[in-house]
Amino acid sequence: ENVFHPVECSYCHSESMMGFRYRCQQCHNYQLCQDCFWRGHAGGSHSNQHQMKEYTSWKS
């Protein structure tokens, strides 16, 4: 089941984030949609070496 997250992806700027959401544990307010995370995208001061937390629902 695809879950809708009402936040913007920090890389592709999609405002309709579906599926899993990934939030960086080091960068303030840096979040990736499932597609950008799986493709290994990073931007700004974010590094792929940073720990990311996976969210499967909006409330989590």
Rank of each mutant, 00 (worst) to 15 (best):
C9Y: 00
S45T: 13
C33Q: 02
T56S: 14
K53Q: 12
H13R: 09
Q25E: 13
C33S: 01
Q26Y: 05
P6D: 13
Y30L: 03
M18F: 14
F37D: 02
F4T: 13
E15V: 12
H46C: 03
E8G: 12
F37P: 01
G44L: 01
R39M: 09
M17Y: 06
G44R: 05
A42M: 10
N48F: 05
Y55M: 14
Q25P: 03
Y22Q: 01
Y30M: 04
E54F: 03
R39Y: 08
T56W: 02
C33V: 01
M52N: 01
Q34D: 05
C36S: 00
Q26E: 09
Q31T: 13
A42Q: 09
G40C: 05
H5W: 07
C24L: 00
Q51N: 08
F4S: 07
S16R: 12
T56H: 10
C24T: 01
S10D: 06
S10N: 06
K59E: 08
V3L: 13
G19Q: 12
S16F: 09
S57R: 07
M18E: 14
D35I: 08
S57N: 04
N29I: 04
V3M: 13
Q25K: 11
Q51P: 08
Y11K: 06
Q31C: 07
Q26M: 03
V3P: 13
Y22D: 01
H46A: 06
M18L: 13
R23W: 05
W58T: 15
N2I: 13
G19I: 05
R21L: 12
F20A: 15
S60L: 06
R23D: 10
N29L: 08
N2C: 04
H50N: 02
H28Q: 11
V7L: 10
E8A: 03
S57Q: 09
C27F: 03
M18P: 14
A42G: 10
H5K: 10
N2F: 08
W38G: 15
F4K: 09
Q51V: 08
D35V: 09
C36Q: 01
H28E: 13
S10H: 15
Q26S: 10
Q34K: 14
H41T: 03
G44E: 04
G43N: 14
R39W: 04
Q51L: 07
H5V: 08
S47K: 12
C9D: 00
D35S: 10
H28T: 14
V3R: 11
Q49S: 12
S45F: 05
C33P: 02
Y22M: 07
F20S: 15
S14K: 10
F4Y: 13
Y11P: 01
M18D: 14
C33A: 02
Y11I: 06
M17E: 14
N29E: 07
Q49P: 05
G44N: 04
D35R: 09
C27W: 01
G44W: 02
H13L: 06
H28R: 11
S10E: 03
G40D: 07
R21D: 03
K53P: 02
H5N: 15
G40K: 10
C27H: 01
C12V: 00
N29Q: 14
D35G: 05
E1L: 01
S47R: 08
N29K: 07
G19C: 06
H13D: 02
Y22N: 03
N2M: 13
Y55L: 13
S10R: 02
M18H: 15
G19R: 09
Q34M: 04
H13F: 05
S16G: 08
N29M: 10
L32I: 14
W38R: 15
C27Q: 00
Q25R: 07
S16A: 10
F4Q: 07
F4W: 05
Q49L: 11
Q51I: 11
S60T: 11
S10M: 04
Y55A: 09
R39I: 04
Q25V: 12
C9N: 00
A42R: 10
Y11G: 08
C36R: 01
M52F: 11
H46P: 05
H41D: 04
H46Q: 04
A42K: 05
H46T: 05
S14Y: 04
S60P: 09
Y30H: 02
H13I: 03
P6E: 10
W38T: 15
N2R: 08
C33K: 00
C36E: 03
K59M: 09
